[in-house]
């Protein structure tokens, strides 16, 4: 009888332990990959876009300060990428097209940042723009020439970039929504264009 009791208690404790372990390990069943966990943390933490100097395809240099008063939607790419980046940018272009024209440039600016400053000089970026019909003004493409500054941005926004053996990078991808004050407000799934553009349009409408 006693034995039976012990066994039952052990089973209950096991179940509780397992559920507790899964719960802790997945932030309460919300994040099953490190990537989701990272996004959730970012959305919670709302880091400020650091003071870094951008150099865009028209060879202009500026900081995020110049976008003060406008929302910025950001992606991170490198132009030599043949796999995820083109898809990311294509989807980015679709989001761009789905935003009412009156908002573009006034309420929101699109910004593609390259994390490969060595190869992605303004000339390369200008070339790259043409594939996605980016105008270089309301949708800018820029690099961060200073490696240290670049690293501070990637760290702040949780972008993980690992060089691979073929001169490329493995990296995680998303749309980053930075608000008018320069704080990261949301990280959007780049594969779900509809949801992303609905979020952005809704967000802009609320502000007006």
């Amino acid at each position: 009888m006693m034995k039976n009791w012990c066994n039952r208690i052990a089973i209950t404790v096991s179940i509780i332990l397992v559920v507790w372990m899964w719960f802790i390990g997945t932030d309460g069943f919300t994040a099953f990959t490190a990537e989701t966990a990272r996004k959730n943390n970012l959305i919670e933490a709302k880091p400020k876009f650091p003071e870094v100097i951008l150099e865009d395809s028209k060879e202009r240099t500026y900081t995020m300060e110049s976008f003060r008063g406008k929302n910025v939607l950001i992606t991170f790419v490198y132009t030599a990428c043949t796999t995820v980046c083109p898809e990311l940018e294509r989807n980015f272009a679709e989001v761009y097209q789905s935003i009412p024209a009156s908002y573009i440039g006034e309420e929101i600016v699109f910004l593609t940042i390259s994390f490969d400053p060595e190869r992605d000089d303004p000339k390369t970026l200008e070339n790259y723009q043409q594939y996605f019909q980016s105008d270089g003004e309301t949708w800018r493409m820029a690099r961060i020439p200073d490696q240290l500054q670049l690293k501070s941005l990637l760290d702040a926004f949780g972008v993980i970039v690992i060089p691979d053996e073929y001169d490329g990078f493995s990296h995680n991808s998303a749309f980053y929504f930075v608000n008018k004050l320069g704080y990261l407000e949301n990280v959007l799934d780049y594969t779900d264009i509809k949801a992303a553009s609905e979020y952005v349009v809704g967000r802009l409408e609320r502000e007006i």
Binding site: T33, A34, E35, R38, T83, V84, I160, I162, D164, S170, H171, N172, S173, T191
Partner: peptide
């Protein structure tokens, strides 16, 4: 096609 583990290629 997406990266499942951030720390590996």
């Amino acid at each position: 096609p997406v990266q499942i583990c951030n720390n590996y290629l």
